[in-house]
Amino acid sequence: MASDDTTQQTPNKGERKSIFTNHEISMLGIRSNLVQASFSYERMHSPGWTWAQLPYWQKIYKDDPKGLKRVMTDNMEFINSSPPLYPILMGLLLTMEEDHVDPQTIKGLKNALFGPMAGIGDAIFWFTIMPIVGGISASIAKNGNVLGPIIFFLVYLFLFWSRAPLAHLGYNLGARAIDVIEDNSKIISHVASILGLTVIGSLIASYVKMQLTIKIGAGNATINLQKQLLDKIFPNILPFAFVFLLYWLLKKNVNPIWLIVVTFVLAIAMSAIGWM
């Protein structure tokens, strides 16, 4: 068989035969970066999702044009998940496609998994890693130290390459990945929320800058409103209150653009009357 060479290189340790080499599975992870290529609101990632996996289906359905048409059409359906986690999903669906599992099963599985995975991915990548890495590297950079952007770049370069092992993970786990994801999705997003919110709490205190400069009273009796009143109650009380005002507005379904407008109007007004 032509696939004898590749079978030995596969990480499956002879449990099952694979037509894909290790390198090809790694490249699946790298190719998963294409999912947003033709993004549109109607079906979100589907054209890019299909494009990324196309060479692999071409290999599976080399002598079966009907199969290729079927798999391409199936995958043009709506899909929207967290891009950094796509390698896992692609890997596990590829195993099943390769084993010629019933297409309806594969489709059902894909639809069942992309939603929960979007939740986990957003919690990990946007709400935990981004504030931590961005916060640390930005606090280094704002003093003019070029290490800030370098650290940021290296961390995200690492995350870029981590897509390759994630593809292997999905491919090797196959259908077992479903249990792993279902068992752990709740606990992972729970734990990521704890870490993320602790960090966001500290970012509110360190990075939202609101200080009153107004002094009230006359002559010797003047008091500095910020230093002698607000800071005595609690430092950073203004930033905390303002974030929650904006949060409340968001809960009332106010468009985020308006929050930016409110911020600018407030800042310019405060500057004009000399309070800040």
Partner: peptide
């Protein structure tokens, strides 16, 4: 000032 408050959004 607005640049300093903007992270709140």
């Amino acid at each position: 000032l607005a640049g300093g408050i903007l992270p709140a959004v």
